[in-house]
Design a protein around this nucleic acid. Structure first.
Lengths: 403, 403
DNA sequence: GGTATTTATTTTAGTGTCTAAATTAAATGT
DNA sequence: ACATTTAATTTAGACACTAAAATAAATACC
């Protein structure tokens, strides 16, 4: 219950300094002090230590910087080569591998088209081992060590235990991925939900700072969500919190990929939209259960141009989204809901029906002050987020280890 | 973003000691050390200070206690008279006033039958001022000072700003209650949701320890909920989070007291059950929009005894509750859901339909490890919780003030 | 009954971390 | 050249914690 503090303040302050440097690039010692509420004497002491460990470097004093009167600031920055992490994004039919440096920047990225639904658990592990080993050997040429690996997976994961519980990209379930890879590569392997990775990146952006309760909804092949409370993803008991896509719109309603009926996802996801449309509209050929990006763009265009059936389908999707959102507002009362993911392409066509549904569902007192906004989709955000999360998680060990 | 620690560890440790004493009664210094992970030298130092301030006392050494070998433990305990708090529970047609001592025990309790729905905001404030003033004068005869007042209200409150946003017990809205009373009585006035008060009490019970993500649902005239994450109520942006009663079961469904349709409350609350029943069953006379406890008990008896219409109505309520619960499981993934409130009297009659609805709504992966249990209803829990919350909130000032 | 043993509490000595203030460093302005 | 400004470092001191030693207060055993 109660569990107070020993003297962990040096570690806390060091981590805060590193985090500030990672979030904002080169910063001077004075500013590190004011930003983190510590004296510059302490910053001097901390940075001396980090300099000694090779985790940071001073920028050469001749670097162009805004000068005024007085002694110029000496900016310090994280040493990119001090460490690296590998992030693997696993989504339906695609594997993305990315190398991030100690400053959190993406150094290398590669995509592989994989028939993920055909893989067994063992085949997936073998594939991951192979790809990671390749990427690692090149990464280690320019970085001192590999401090962590992140698996960013669409679906339900138990971050704490490192077990993949269920993913729409895979046929098998309950696979303890982290443990096996951690042993093979001798470093921590984090298993993260893709939406949490994306949300972490968005939350760090200045535009979305100052929203302590942030909900991020990802529209796409499925519907993902992340709830950040003071910047920390809310995970729940076993990591399967924030499964917005499978919260209910209509008991006994449309069939969802999960096998149940009436989920928001069964109305608002790519496959749901395409399924509803292919009955009544002539659309590009292809796998209608797993519509491709061009297929979805064609459908979305129809809706945006006013095709009556397409308009109706997107409105119904928006209505389901709105009812789901009403539950979010009632239960989480967030400061901000951000809607992103590849499915934002059609958000304009859903927006009005969504707003109407929210007003229909909730009295104004319960809608509260929540701001709802959409946000352009950048496919690399997942891995950037995975890198940031992994570096932050492994920093304590890195600091302790090199003492 | 980042905001690390100064040297607040003395305050933290002192608060932890006080909290342990409040939760567990008299404890020896050694045990305070091990329970809180601090050395007993530190406990000696902290308790010397608290003794000096008169906030704790040592128990006389002859007090009967389990003896073994070695020097006997000297138990210390909070001094009840060091301070007091007043907690007022405002619910429909009733006002309860309670005085709590510094050890968190209830010292005095009184109930007043009030036609709350007839009150204007000004009349409520006047009434509260009068009642609080009375109770305070007697409380101050035996306690050194009044450190805080707690208003535990059924409905939506903004704890941070001290504004009552909406309550089913009152006709007016958006009343800044805390500020006015705080000025009048010259002490902090906390505004809390009644469900959060109850949940805090339950979470402190040993039986429910070890559930970091705890959801408490209160069935009764309305439906309340509290989400505790590591023992702390989740409030959201303006305090109106956890409005489970107004999350949706059926778009366009039954009419709710809030004016919208399809809320869980419109199926599962006392008034909803009684409304559904009074159409088809002969029931005791009375205000069917605000059924009394005897009225509800009569109806519940019918369902438990197998009256077909009553059974059907409770099953439908259970189904709505189950669908709502499914959303909770998907979105919060709690370790434990506790169902309490006066409405637990009918929980047995809802249980099976609730479980069926959950299975119908969610795949097992998303139901996860959550345990669902009911818990007997004790009407005094609200004020006990309000006292505990208020003491905990005001302890820092009390410590700083008397330095 | 006296002494050893056990356990609780307090005292002592020492460490780590922080800050304010003083000092040093490195620029610009006049 | 020298005053001014701002940054970074050094110094001196305060606080809080812990481990270990000392003290206190009981029981156990002979």
């Amino acid at each position: 219950m109660a569990s107070p503090s020993h003297d962990s303040s040096r570690l806390d302050n060091t981590l805060a300094v590193i985090r500030t440097l990672r979030d904002r690039g080169p910063v001077a010692r004075v500013d590190l002090g004011t930003l983190n509420g510590i004296s510059s004497a302490t910053v001097t002491s901390i940075s001396a230590e980090l300099l000694h460990q090779g985790l940071i470097t001073e920028l050469p004093p001749d670097t162009p910087r805004p000068n005024g009167r007085g002694r110029p600031k000496t900016l310090i920055q994280l040493a990119p080569e001090a460490a690296c992490v590998i992030c693997i994004k696993l989504s339906i039919n695609e594997l993305q591998l990315v190398v991030g440096d100690y400053a959190g920047q993406m150094q290398h990225s590669e995509h592989h088209a994989i028939d993920t639904l055909a893989l067994t658990a063992d085949e997936l592990i073998a594939l991951l081992e192979e790809k990671i080993a390749e990427v690692r050997s090149t990464a280690l040429a320019s970085h001192r060590r590999l401090v962590g690996i992140c698996l960013a997976v669409q679906g339900v994961v138990s971050s704490h235990s490192g077990t993949l519980i269920w993913s729409p990209a895979l046929r098998f379930r309950n696979a303890p991925l982290s443990a096996l890879l951690a042993e093979r590569f001798d470093c921590p392997v984090l298993l993260e939900n893709d939406a949490n990775c994306i949300a972490s990146v968005l939350a760090a952006q200045p535009a979305y700072a100052g929203y302590p309760n942030l909900v991020v909804i990802m529209l796409g092949y499925g519907i993902g969500m992340s709830v950040l409370i003071d910047g920390v993803p809310f995970l729940g008991a076993n990591g399967s919190a924030a499964e917005f896509g499978h919260s209910k719109y209509q008991p006994g309603g449309a069939l969802c990929a999960c096998g149940k009926r009436g989920c928001i996802e069964a109305y608002t996801s790519d496959y749901a939209l395409y399924r509803a449309a292919s009955d009544v509209i002539e659309l590009p050929a292809g796998d209608s259960a797993h519509p491709s990006e061009p297929q979805m763009q064609a459908l979305t265009q129809l809706a945006l141009q006013g095709h009556p059936e397409a308009v109706r389908i997107f409105a119904e999707a928006g209505r389901a989204l709105g009812y789901g959102m009403a539950n979010l507002l009632a239960l989480f009362n967030p400061d901000l809901v951000l809607i992103t993911g590849s499915g934002v392409r059609g958000f304009t066509a859903m927006h009005d029906a969504m707003q109407d549904a929210i007003s229909e569902a909730l009295v104004t007192e319960l809608i509260g002050p929540t701001r709802i906004a959409s946000c352009p989709w950048d496919r690399d955000m997942t891995c950037l987020g995975g890198i940031a999360i992994t570096l932050q998680a492994t920093d304590p060990q890195l600091l302790m280890g090199s003492t």
